[in-house]
Amino acid sequence: MGAATFVGSALAQTEPIEAQENSLQRAIGDFVAYLKSETYDAASEAARLAREHEDEIEAAEKSFHSRLAELGAALSGQKDRADTLARDAMARLEAWSRSAGVSWDEAERLAQAMLDRLSAWLRSQAPSHESEETAV
C-alpha cells in the first residue's frame, strides 16, 4: 500500500507541472500571435499611408536630390577657389623668396646668427653678482 500511495502522489505531482507547462506554452504562443498581428497591422498601415502620400513622397525625394546637387556644386566651387588661392599663394611665396635673393637656409642661418649676437649682448649687459652684493 505504501508503494501505491507513493506512485499515486508522484502522478499527482506531475500532472500540475504538465498543466503549468501547457499553460506557459499557450501564453507564449498567444503572445507571439499577438506580436505577429500587431506587426502585420503596422506594416499594412505604413503601406496604406505610403500609397496615400506617394505624390508627396516623390516630390520630397526630388527636392532632396535637387538640394543635394546644389550643395555639391557649391562645395565644388569653393574647393576650386581654395585650390586656386593656395596655388597663387605658393607662387607668390616662391617669387618673393627668389626676389629676396636669399635662400631659406641662408635666411635661417642669418636669423640664428642674429639671435646668438643678441644673446651675447644681453649677457654682457646683465649686472655682475659682485655689484649686487651689499657691504656689511
Rank of each mutant, 00 (worst) to 15 (best):
H65D: 08
A43C: 04
T134D: 10
S128N: 05
L122R: 14
G8I: 03
E56S: 15
G77R: 14
E133N: 10
V7M: 13
E94V: 05
L122H: 07
I57N: 06
I28S: 00
A107N: 05
D83P: 04
A82K: 11
M114V: 10
Q13L: 08
M90V: 07
E45Y: 07
D116G: 05
R48A: 12
M90S: 08
R117E: 02
L24A: 00
I17N: 02
N22S: 01
M114K: 14
L49T: 03
R117N: 04
A42S: 12
A43R: 13
Q112D: 10
D30C: 01
A89T: 13
L115C: 01
D30V: 02
E45R: 15
D55K: 14
E61I: 15
G77H: 09
H129D: 03
D83V: 09
S9E: 13
D55N: 08
Q78W: 08
K62V: 02
A46V: 07
R51T: 11
L75T: 06
A43W: 02
F6W: 13
A50V: 13
T14Y: 15
S99N: 09
K36W: 01
S131N: 09
A100N: 12
T134W: 06
S119V: 02
W121T: 13
S63P: 02
S131W: 03
A82C: 10
A100C: 10
M1V: 09
A73G: 05
S99P: 00
D116R: 14
D30K: 03
E130T: 14
S131E: 02
R109F: 04
A82W: 03
R92A: 15
S76V: 01
D30Q: 10
A69C: 00
G72Q: 11
A86C: 05
L71V: 05
R48Q: 09
T134N: 07
F64E: 04
H65A: 15
A113G: 03
A95V: 02
P127W: 07
T84P: 00
S124L: 11
I57A: 15
A33T: 04
A120L: 12
Q20W: 00
Q78I: 08
R92F: 06
S44P: 01
A111C: 01
L118I: 08
A27H: 03
F31Y: 11
S9R: 14
P127Y: 04
V136Y: 04
A12S: 13
E132I: 08
D55H: 06
W96I: 15
G2P: 03
G29C: 00
R26V: 02
M1G: 13
G101I: 01
M1Y: 06
A60D: 08
E108Q: 10
L118W: 06
A89Y: 09
E21T: 01
Q20K: 12
K79Y: 11
D88H: 00
S66N: 13
D55Y: 05
L118V: 04
A12H: 14
A47T: 03
R117P: 00
R87S: 07
E56M: 09
E70V: 10
A126W: 05
S9K: 11
T5H: 11
P16A: 06
L35H: 00
R92Y: 04
V102A: 03
L75P: 02
L118S: 07
S124C: 06
P127I: 02
H53N: 15
M90K: 14
D55C: 03
I17C: 06
A47H: 11
S63M: 07
W104N: 12
A73Q: 09
S99T: 05
A107F: 03
D83W: 06
H129I: 01
K62Y: 06
A4Y: 04
E56H: 12
